[in-house]
């Protein structure tokens, strides 16, 4: 920050995708903006910036949250996993199934969808179609690949259960 006295800076130490990070940010800085602008993690996307679209979904201490509705300062001492963190060892089965199902169109919402879907599957390995829809209904897709995304989540669940292959 070089805004020169516009804001007091807050030192925030957090763990992002397994690495310890320290950033100095003004109090109003959201976790989303800090991830994107201070840490170069642009996989989390900005659309509505008010918790309605889900494009910025990350895991905070393992729970899916909208990074636009978390102050960076709140994450001090906590663990954040972004879509980049989920993908560190190459494409996950879930990401592969997104591709296989044709769920990826313009792609802008997809990182958020992937994080929300991963969160769902970790808590519920066999979600029903209704549960998948409900779990993802905070993630907007204007290409409206909704049915494809549901297929991708179902296929991943089946794969993780060993139903196929």
């Amino acid at each position: 920050m070089s805004a020169g006295g516009l804001h007091d800076l807050q030192t925030v130490a957090l763990t992002v995708n397994g690495s310890e990070r320290t950033v100095a940010v003004p109090a109003h800085r959201t976790l989303l903006d800090a991830l994107r602008d201070e840490m170069g993690l642009t996989g989390s996307k900005t659309c509505c910036a008010e918790g309605e679209c889900g494009a910025c979904t990350v895991l905070l201490d393992g729970r899916a949250v909208n990074a636009c509705l978390v102050l960076c300062a709140e994450a001090d001492g906590h663990e954040v996993t972004t879509v980049e963190g989920l993908s560190e060892r190459g494409l996950t089965d879930l990401q592969e199934e997104f591709l296989n199902a044709g769920a990826v169109q313009c792609g802008f919402c997809i990182p958020g969808q992937v994080v929300s879907a991963e969160y769902l599957l970790r808590g519920n390995p066999s979600p029903s179609e209704e549960q998948i829809r409900e779990a993802l209904s905070g993630n907007l897709c204007r290409c409206a690949g909704y049915q494809r995304i549901v297929r991708a989540v179902q296929a991943t669940a089946a794969r993780r259960r060993g139903d196929r292959g």
């Binding site: 994107r36 170069g40 993690l41 642009t42 996989g43 989390s44 996307k45 900005t46 972004t82 879509v83 980049e84 989920l86 993908s87 494409l91 990401q95 997104f98 591709l99 296989n100 044709g102 990826v104 313009c106 792609g107 802008f108 997809i110 990182p111 992937v114």
Partner: peptide, 23 residues
């Protein structure tokens, strides 16, 4: 055939750079 989308993988990992992601 239902060939997989060109650039699709980067769109699932967050590596795809949209204009606001460019430095």
């Amino acid at each position: 055939r239902p060939v997989l989308r060109y650039g699709g993988a980067d769109r699932t990992t967050g590596a795809q750079r949209f204009v606001a992601d460019l430095s």
